[in-house]
Write a protein that binds this DNA or RNA. Structure first.
Length: 105
DNA sequence: GTCGTGACTCGAT
DNA sequence: AATCGAGCCACGA
């Protein structure tokens, strides 16, 4: 089982209406300290993949932008809002409210 | 096999 | 509050 497989399976567990950070996913995938790898894995994911990639954000509660995504980041925000997640004035998500607390560990 | 890169994070400026 | 630099290491060319 590759690291990517673990990452995808964990991301798939995030419930609708909640979000998780890259670092959090890394920990759950037993890849502590390798948050970058999580982003790496999601980058090669297709936008129409079954994995809810849009529920993964950075530690600051913001959407991580990348030139390589070309507009998909805007779509991410729409998807999250459609699930009831709110963005504050600075385009940030309140992690205290929306962060996913995984039962597994 | 080597090398550059990065949807990140954290602590220090 | 905004920026910077270093750390992390699997992946793909």
């Amino acid at each position: 089982m590759s690291n990517y497989d673990r990452i995808y399976s964990i991301v798939s567990q995030i419930p609708s209406g909640k979000v998780a950070t890259y670092g959090q996913i890394a920990e759950l995938a037993q890849l502590y300290g390798q948050a970058r790898l999580v982003g790496y894995a999601l980058r090669r994911l297709d936008p129409r993949s079954p994995v809810p990639w849009h529920r993964v954000i950075n530690a600051k509660g913001e959407i991580s932008y990348s030139a390589l995504r070309r507009g998909n980041d805007y779509q991410q925000r729409s998807l999250l809002e459609a699930e009831g997640i709110e963005f504050n004035r600075q385009g940030k998500i309140d992690l205290q409210v929306y962060l996913w607390r995984s039962s597994v560990r």
